[in-house]
Every structure is written in C-alpha cells, then in structure tokens.
Design a protein around this nucleic acid. Sequence first.
DNA 1: ATAATCTCGGAAAACGTATTCCATCACCTA
DNA 2: TAGGTGATGGAATACGTTTTCCGAGATTAT
Lengths: 341, 341
Amino acid sequence: MTEERIGSSPTLRDVAAEAGVSAATASRALNGSTRTVSAEKLALVLRAAEKLGYAPNLSAQATARGSTKTVALIVHDIADPYFSSIAAGAIEGAEAAGLTVTMAVTDRSPARELEIVSTLRGHRPHAIVLAGSRIGDEHDALAGELRAYEAAGGRVAVVSQPGLPYGTVAVDNRRAAGDLAAALVAHGYRRFAVLRGPDDLRTSRDRSEGFLAGLAQPGNAVVIEAGFTEEGGHAAMTELLGRGLDDIELVFAVNDVMAIGAMRALRDAGLVPGRDLAVAGFDDISAATDVAPALTTVRVPMRAMGLRAIDLVLAGGAENEVVWLPTTVVLRDSSPLRTGR
Amino acid sequence: MTEERIGSSPTLRDVAAEAGVSAATASRALNGSTRTVSAEKLALVLRAAEKLGYAPNLSAQATARGSTKTVALIVHDIADPYFSSIAAGAIEGAEAAGLTVTMAVTDRSPARELEIVSTLRGHRPHAIVLAGSRIGDEHDALAGELRAYEAAGGRVAVVSQPGLPYGTVAVDNRRAAGDLAAALVAHGYRRFAVLRGPDDLRTSRDRSEGFLAGLAQPGNAVVIEAGFTEEGGHAAMTELLGRGLDDIELVFAVNDVMAIGAMRALRDAGLVPGRDLAVAGFDDISAATDVAPALTTVRVPMRAMGLRAIDLVLAGGAENEVVWLPTTVVLRDSSPLRTGR
DNA sequence: ATAATCTCGGAAAACGTATTCCATCACCTA
DNA sequence: TAGGTGATGGAATACGTTTTCCGAGATTAT
C-alpha cells in the first residue's frame, strides 16, 4: 500500500513526509550536522529512510555544501603495474577517509592531460592527485589550470615529480639510480647501455642521469631513448643489438616494464638475459620477481606513494611539503656477479 | 580592474553578467541545448566564459538535469593485471563517450561490495559496471541494492558473470578451460592438479569444472583450493608439493597470477617449471609472456571486455543481453610437448 | 494587410539538499 | 516570579545549474 514513485529514488522530502517531520529535521538526522535532534524523531527518520531505501543524492549535497567527497586521480596508463599500484594505494587511502576516487588516464599525452584537468575542475573534486605528469614550468597551460583549481579551494598533490609548488610524494630517483649504478660497478660491470624514456619525463631523466653519474667512468655508456613502455624497451633493445656494440655488459632500463621488454627482445634475438647480457630495471613491480632471470631493480614503494599522496591532500599541511619515501636496490639474477673479465 | 571573487570559481551568473545577458542565455550558449541562441550573444558569452576561466559546476548540472555523466566501476583489486586491463578498457570507452569513471575496490569482500554499491547509489552514476563480483542469487542484499538502482533509472553491466539479469560481457570459461584441457591431453599430459580459487567465485568454479570435464579421465586430477591471488597460487603449490604427489605432470591454475605464484613456489622448492612440472594458467596477462618459461594459458580479451561493458550500458539495448567474447588457447613453454611416458 | 508561425531573450521555477533564521518550549537562576 | 538560557523543530532561502513559460519581434502565408 506504500505508493513509491516508480522511476526515481526517494528523496529527503519523501523520507521527511514518511516520518512526519520537516525536511530540515530529516536532513539533520541523516548526516553529521552540528545540530542535535531528539531521540524520538531521530528514530522515526531513520526508520523511514530504511523503509524507503533512501540514499542521499550526492550531487545535490555537493551543490548545497559547495564541496564534494571525491578525489580525482590522473595516471598515464592504468594497465601499467606502476600506476595501478599507485592507484591501489590511493583508493585505499581515499576509501578509508570516506572519499570516492574518480580516475582519468592521459595515455601520456600532455594535451589530454590538460583537457582532463580542465574538465575535472568542473567536478570540483576535493583534491586532484597527479601521478606521473609532465608539467613543465609555471607558465604552461596545465600549471594555469591547476592554479585556478587551487584558487577555488582545491588541493593538489603530485606523485614523483618534486620541485612543483604542490604537496609531493616522491622517491629520490637520481640518488637511487646512482646507488644502483654503484652496486653494479661493485659487481664488476664496466660497460653500460641506458634505455631511457622521453626526455620531458622528469622521472626518466632523473633516473638516467643519476645512473650515469653513479658510474665510475660515465663516458662508458651509450644511451638510447624510447617509449616508457614495454614496447619501448623492446624497440630500444632491438636497436641496441642492431648497432652491434658487443662490449656492453649491462643494460639499465629506467623502469621495469622497459627492462622486461628489453629482456624479451634479447630472447627474440636468441640471447639469454643475465648470461649473455645483464639487465637492470627500476620500480620493482611484481613481475620483476617472476621473470627469469629475476630482475635486478630498485624497489619503489608504489602503493605507499598513492597512500601518502592522499594523506597529503587530506591533512592540508604545508602547501608544498615534500614526502620522500625510501628505496632499496635489489640485486637479482639478471645481473649476476661478474668475476674476472 | 576586473573584480574576481577570490576563493571560488566563477559561476554561470558571473559569465552572464560579464556578457550582459541572462543566465538562461548563458546556459544555452555554453552547452548543447535544443534552443538556439543568436550568433552575436553566443560570441559574447563564449568570450566572457573564456575570460573568466569558467568551468561549469557538474554537481549543480547533475542535480538540475537529474542525471550524471559518470559511470562507476567496481573491481576486486586494481593492482591485479586482470582488473587493471578491464579498467583500462572501461576508461577508454567511457572517456570516448565523455563520461568520467569513478572506481571502487572491494578487496574481494562481499560486505564491502554491498557497502560500495549502496553509497554508489548516492552518486547516481549513469551506470554501474561490476567486474568480477560474486552476486549470489536474486535474494541477497546486493541484488536488492542493484534492483533499487535500476528502478531509479540506472544501468547495470556485469563482466564475467553470465546468468544475472543484467547486461553481461563474458567469455565461456567452462568451454575454454575444456579446450585447454583437451589441448594438454593432446600434448601427452595425463595426470593433473588444479589450483582453484574460492568456490563462491563463479569464474573460478567454471574454469576448474570446465577443465576437469575436458580431461579424458576426469578422475585423475587432484584439486586444491586457495586464494585467487599470486600468494594463493604460491600457497596451493606449496601444499601440493608437501603432499608428495610425484605422478602429477601438469598443474592448472585457474588464473595467471595464481599460476605465476605456483611457478615461484616451484622455483623456491628447487624445481624447474616446465621441465620438472608443467604449468598452465588462464587470462594471458602480459606477465604470462615474460615469465620463463612462458606460460601456457587461455587468452581472454580483458581490455575489450571493459570496453564492451561500457558499450552495453550506453547502447541501452536489451536488459540482459549477453556479449560473448572469444578466447584462444595459447600453448607456450611451460607445457612442453610430452613425448613418451 | 492581417493572421499565423517561428526565433530568440529573459524571468522564474525546479532539481534535492544544507543551513540560516525564527519560534516555541522547558528548564534554570536569582 | 521574572528573566535568561539552551534545546529543538520548521519555514524559508541558498547552492549553481537547467528548463519551462511567456512575451516580443521578425518572418511567412493567405
């Protein structure tokens, strides 16, 4: 005998009517308001809400309150384990705080990135987390969009790109790559190739420069640029093999997916990674343990990075606080100890 | 000399005022309305919007229109390559249609799943896509929530769980697993172990039952249940080894991450996957190609599944249309041809 | 020339909620 | 007992849009 309107959700007014109270009281009862409501009416409202299957319209709440309960996460490619791990951490942190995460992927296109941030402004998310962006300087369009967003009260956090005027969580890519280089030199390696990503990718640049700086004689390395993907690593390694530089002992790819692509290229050429040519990567994605030989790399706490980025925007601390997370060099079978020459 | 209110975005009224027109005209000018507005005023409004850096408040739009431009995607674990690939496809499809994707992860907890759908209803998303859920029957709470959501005009699509009264995109897990079993039998294998996930996971059940049914003598297989994760695969394989069933020739894990975990357990025990014990998985995640030996598996078009799920909810075709996507058995080095006994 | 239609602009109402005022009532203090 | 104070409920308004409705010109058909 209850007459529910078909085709639409029950509204706060419906609940109020059912409970025999005003909309204001219903509103106060159903969410954390400063105002108190009598136990009697509270029970009435809760019962009515339950009976009608009421779910507050979050859009309406957002316009009334002027703020939303969502945070936007921007990644290059969600299928890339690096980003999906960061996303997992971010989602975990956000859900713990009662926020929902909206996600957008840039496909590594700066134009797309700009477009995304621009439409995102319309969503008025509580915060925007940029994972692996390539914001240039203060003068480009993206920086402008972000400034506008911040001016309107939004929070911004950046993952893995220190030096921008936002809360940042990062690892010291340069130093870690240097540590890796030093460890490999200590393992007996002398002649290197570096497979790096596009030059405008801060992460790629830091890692490749840090690695070169960590070598005893930096001159001894050939550098090849390629896409920041497994395909890119494959292509770069193929090119390297084509050049016929037989004296190279170890190939360092600036991230694990590239390194794994490079290993595949080696196998395609009939070579055995680790034996014929050593390989090292960066990130320690879970696949790094599973490939054979297991990949020497630098462990980056990706999940923690996502989590801390959320902390950062929620804590609302200093504007451009930088959280540095520790890394570990992990040597595995893809770079066996090199005895003798 | 322009006086912009600090601390908040320009509103439609601001734009209208700046352009010297009414709010109604500004609204009509700035979005695809049925009504036309004169070229002159249109230019004025566009110029004003540009000047002020106007971005429409999507929450307000949503409450006014009564519908949002978002679709919600629910996955078990975004760091799992199976789900992150589906997510990549879904995001691609959604962005192409001008929708934003909000994401939630259940961590494989039915309680969490219910909670998520319930809060999601508040967002009034255009559609909800459930990837890898475990909705039981029509009587449980989750089904109830979904019914309420649909009654209010929302669309639901399900990935990989046919038989529910929603648009579905799936692969025929049972048949594909049977095909894989047949191919392995043809390769000379006779004695099998199956590492499967929790029994209430439809996907796991279909794959393990299909595999057993595809064997010549189904009796010849031992079945071990474990978590649907790499850790689960590792644990299951460790248990299997502990049982000392030396006559087993091939271990089939119901998904690739479990299979990869199983391979790791083999190596931990000093055995060589593929030589001492063959392994096969299911899904063909990209890591399957990169492990050594490369993993025999069934290719599932995960990205396409995400994409088609979005198509399904956008097309608005038949309520419970099922889209079947093709699979391919791919035999790799982890299950070498078995010659003689 | 007049009626009928079309085009376009703006005022105002609507969407579903939060919140600001009032008003009422009970209780406490002096 | 009078005035003050605190708790509680409701009416009304605000949030930033979209959309309905109305009216005024302009255009077309007769």
